[in-house]
Design a protein around this nucleic acid. Structure first.
Lengths: 329, 329
DNA sequence: TTGAAAGCGCTAACAA
DNA sequence: TTGTTAGCGCTTTCAA
């Protein structure tokens, strides 16, 4: 059932049917009613892509993340999808994994689908070496990086300043934590991970705290790994008086280790995930403001599609959400 | 840059370029090379939808869930997306929310996009009253329900038998739990919720356990709500000797309440989410086998697209994952 | 092995 | 207000 069938059944031209579809004003009410009625009767559904072909816009945005099963990404995807849908855009979702080759393939697929824009979620898309695939995509359409930064022409970055977040946190905790511990997720190199780590180091420096080899612990991204790490430190008598983690999951591991040893210390995680309310005591955490970043990115996209020029980088400040494991004094 | 441009630059016809694109054998190696080279030089990207228009398949599947920020749904979406991508299908993601009207709109949108199939994730899509929108969609294309069941023609259901899961769990726990408590998520009516609840009631009956008004507690979907509920019971001196929750989140709340009161009881959650490893003690939970369900659904979809007839309902058994809060004796 | 041309479903410019 | 028609980018049939 296509526009021609409807036109025939109504004894009008396809143009008239098309006008009805697009709510064009210059159709007589009578004709409009007839066309609408027949459409309803026949259960007609217009073909969005046939339309898109001519209009050169599929009203579709490609969202890419490494793995939408990861709560951080799924949150971002949910927020982006919602904002986009509200503006009449559909979401083509690609979980790319972390292999460069697969990420490249995702971008190619999206370009073939002629999406109106691409949003890459997470700093997994900042390669250390080769970012030409991103550059190439950005030459064809608006490309946004969510919570990541890349100095490429035509790439817009909307992110939370995580270096600053951790830096300020160290400073803020300094009165209570003279020898803080930083749990660094080393599962996979990531730009964001490096930023946070740098924030911690800068914080140590600016707060005039001791920086020795034990201050930063590299662990795998999992509760158990963090827990074992912290227990190991305790067993070896390595002292610390507070924990900052690059991920809530790691903070949970630290909390478990400390609780097991009957020790209570300030702990702050990162991402402000649902885990924070699940521990005892509940976990304080840095919120990277996805709920603000994502709608902002969509707004910027719309303006860009409308022809307005937009800033290349927008960065917002993280916010500490205080729960039981740490409160600023 | 389109197929005609490439054809012109190569001094061949568009048909030949098309054949190269589709790896059609009857193109001379020399011609093929030339065309491929020019494509590369010009950075040509074929338009997937122009292709789809003719072939009448967009190689795209619509996945709908109420909210992909919910870890249960995001896990399912991730698994489905991965399986689909492996078979060359892209995923159009729709987070529909729980309003009937929005769900209907999602289906309409997907039909307009001429997706090859639709997968509805979660029992939020089993309305109590009106499922005609699903029926209608299923008349146009293969439609799958993941972890939900609806007695509609042409609708394939792939799910975990959650009634049985809870039923068997009650039976299994009976030696240790004579007066189990069931935390029922009443945030929103859902078919799956009713199934689990029924499973609990059936379990009580078959295990010859007492069924009184206190056995089932309806709570909101959140840690705090469950925690307050259980604390309330404790305060009022209502006795129970084990907790089963319809969601891990609720189990966490129960665990918090009990821990706070220094009480240790068997607790089992549902979904086997990442929360289970985050509590102390770690949470035992029923796994509804999404990692099996989702690839299975995709397999069935492919067979169906290939013309094979498939069973209307496939149901798998849940699996208890034993951690510290409960082990079968 | 290659090319010409019809057709996929829709929009919009132009005519009437 | 309505109709005719030329695209949009690609595939495929039929001929050469």
């Amino acid at each position: 059932m296509n526009i021609r069938d409807i036109a025939a059944r109504c004894h009008v031209s396809v143009a008239t049917v098309s006008r009805v579809l697009n709510e064009h004003p210059s159709v007589s009410p009578k004709t409009r009613e007839k066309v609408l009625r027949v459409m309803r009767e026949e259960g007609y559904t217009p073909n969005a892509f046939a339309r898109g072909l001519g209009l050169d816009s599929m009203r579709m945005v490609g969202i890419v993340c490494a793995d939408v099963a990861n709560p951080f990404y799924s949150r971002a995807v949910a927020l982006l999808e919602g904002s986009l849908r509200a503006k009449g855009f559909d979401t083509l979702l690609c979980c790319s994994g972390t292999q460069l080759k697969d990420k490249q393939k995702c971008l190619t697929l999206l370009l073939e689908k002629r999406v109106d824009a691409i949003m890459l979620v997470g700093s997994a898309f900042c390669e250390q070496t080769d970012n030409r695939h991103i550059q190439r995509a950005a030459e064809q359409l608006p490309l946004f990086l969510i919570n990541a930064q890349l100095p490429l022409e035509n790439v817009t970055c909307v992110l939370c300043d995580e270096r600053e977040a951790i830096h300020d946190l160290v400073m803020q905790m300094a009165p209570q934590c003279k020898i803080p511990l930083y749990l660094h997720d080393m599962t996979k190199w990531a730009w964001a991970g490096e930023c946070k780590l740098q924030g911690f180091l800068d914080g140590l420096h600016d707060a005039h705290l001791l920086h020795d080899a034990d201050r930063v612990q590299a662990v795998e991204n999992g509760v158990l790994s963090a827990q074992q790490c912290v227990e190991g430190l305790l067993d070896r008598g390595i002292s610390f008086d507070g924990v900052i983690a690059s991920e809530d999951l790691l903070a949970v591991g630290a909390l478990k280790a400390l609780t097991k040893h009957g020790i209570e210390l300030p702990i702050v995680g990162f991402n402000n995930s649902m885990l924070c309310d699940c521990t005892m005591p509940s976990l304080s955490s840095m919120d990277n403001m996805l709920h603000a970043l994502c709608p902002m990115a969509v707004d910027m996209l719309l303006r860009r599609l409308a022809g307005e020029t937009q800033p290349r980088v927008v960065s917002v400040q993280a916010q500490l959400v205080q729960r039981e494991t740490y409160r600023a004094s």
